[in-house]
Design a protein around this nucleic acid. Structure first.
Lengths: 204, 204, 204, 204
DNA sequence: CATGAATGAGGTTTCATTCAT
DNA sequence: CATGAATGAAACCTCATTCAT
């Protein structure tokens, strides 16, 4: 999986049949990653499960890396959508409520497809250039920074950027670890309260 | 890299020449991982860089997985030694000081060989059974739990185990991210203070 | 050559091009086994001689063992076909004639590709599970048993099963040894008569 | 295991310690072949089990092939000793008794170390030049020929050489198959009688 | 003579990718 | 555009053998 090869999709899926094929392939890849793990997810196997020929797969993705990146993009976008929606909803609430809501929301977002999330996250370094991973995370942090800046007056922290870095990674890690290592925590209200407490006491 | 194969070292390095060879191989592996990345670290390349034949490499490590695990073990042990030493030193200090000391210590531990640490951590799922990774982390958490229990009366948190989980992963992540993504933070006193603040406000 | 790996053909040779490739590979393997011996028959060499890439070889055979088993199967099937045909032809003849006919037939069957037969037979224990070898032989014995049971009244032996074991192995060995060690015997009418005599005097 | 390399023992085991070492190595090889199979019998493993260094092993055997040939030679010699002794004992008895005695004797000889016998026999083509295997067998046949010639007047067969070929291979195979495939036959008196009957009816 | 660390040619196998049909 | 047979670089690993100590 050479990192230097082109990774932009080969052809815009402008026609509906193409979009179907792309979806099929991505869904097949997701299924195999979830059920059989990263090492079993060969391009031939993905094509087979998607019901298309390996040649067709390469019509839509220039290489395996691009396929995995597209899947990651899709997955991350879905998760981000949930989170952004929540951020908007809590925009007017008290920060205290907002933080608790964000924690709940993150945990739920991670609970929706935890196995795929785990596999993609663990193996991302193998198929994504580091800059891209960084970009994704920077995106999250920027979102949080923007939100916190609006509420700057209510916060005890001075350096908003650094606080965003800290808060984002902390929340991301704790939800991720809960999802992948301590799934008992995922729906444990006590855990949610504690994580929220950690953030509240720091920020407020 | 089959996860099911034996991974215990093949030959006890009882003689000094053997110990040298083992060290050479591990150092060569570390060097390649640091400078050229995980995918370039093939057994042949490692042997070549170590100045030994591929056969010799396999005299001391039954397979590639075992080699990487040994290197990880070595690296983790070195880091743990620093941390445990620090934990003992701060045992008698005020919790507030202790927390700050631990944060400093973790950041310094991560600063010693950050690139190797990053590569090993990112690719660990490829060569270590998940249980083993878990064990390593559980070890850290147990250490923290034991320490916090001694100071239980000074803490505002009730559930020490959960607090240990939260505190350990938070500290681990923030130092790790600082080391791998924002090396500017590594020696920024402000960052150290903020991370310590996050933990202090939660625990005390 | 791991005995535990899957050995069923990987891809049905449904298309004519595939069937050609499979035949090419098997013929190349047979040629090398005959001309250069078992130890020279590496997968790379077989592919090279077949004029296909090593990858193609592994498209059709999951591993070397499977390839050798397929070749053995093909060879044995060809020989069995001759023998079964002969058994049917002699079903109505006198036992005395039948025995002589079978001896002739076995010798001729062994004469068709004696070198390949020798190599495959000698090295079978290296690539076939013992049960499979046993099965092949049990198949022969069952055939003979069935035939002898029909003629039970003409025989002086009581224990038909044991007699089949004895007769089958005796005939198989003598023809095989003649083919591989004393090829002079292969077409020597005197030898055929003597072997037939051995069996006739025992059975009748 | 190159067939072209020198195979004569490197040094005559004239000194008693040397002879011990040689015996140790051969016994270790036999043990591994019996218990773990041919593919596990590497030179390093044999040396280890024999309690000598791999270097020492190569003091006494120029290569692996020579070692295996020596072991085979030893094993065959032991079996031949039993058979020759029996041949002498029965020299004066009636041929009918002699044949039965030989059958019994062969079955018992095969019963003494059947697993080693099986492994050596099955894999002999891998480490012995074909001529040598042939020589061993020709030795047996010559023995039988000599014996039968003495009794020529009592026999109904004309061509003694051919009869020896037939009788020897038949008896060898039936006892070998009994030992390796139908161990029930090994001590079944009925089987012994049948095999003897086969030979008696042919010869007498 | 003994040792055992070192050697390295060469084996089997995988899998991302191409291209003739 | 779809197909899927074919490709082949490159990975991991073994084991008979040597030779400096």
């Amino acid at each position: 999986m050479n990192r230097k090869t082109a990774t932009s999709p080969r052809r815009k899926p402008s026609q509906s049949r193409s979009r179907d094929t792309v979806s099929c392939i991505l869904e097949a890849a997701a299924h195999i990653l979830r059920q059989e793990g990263f090492e079993k997810a060969t391009t031939n196997r993905i094509a087979e499960r998607a019901g298309v020929s390996i040649g067709s797969l390469y019509q839509y993705f220039p290489n395996k890396q691009a396929l995995l990146m597209a899947l990651t993009h899709q997955h991350m976008t879905e998760m981000q959508a949930v989170i952004i929606a929540q951020l908007n909803q809590v925009a007017t609430q008290s920060l205290e409520n907002a933080i608790q809501a964000m924690v709940d929301c993150m945990l739920e977002a991670h609970a929706s497809d935890p196995e795929l999330h785990r596999v993609l996250t663990e193996h991302a370094p193998e198929f994504m250039p580091r800059e891209q991973i960084q970009q994704l995370e920077d995106g999250y942090i920027a979102l949080v920074t923007a939100y916190l800046r609006q509420r700057e007056s209510e916060l005890q922290v001075q350096n908003i950027e650094m606080a965003s870095f800290i808060v984002t990674h902390t929340l991301e890690t704790l939800t991720h670890r809960a999802a992948t290592q301590q799934s008992a925590h995922l729906n444990d209200p006590e855990f949610r309260i504690q994580v929220a407490a950690l953030l509240k006491r720091y920020l407020l």
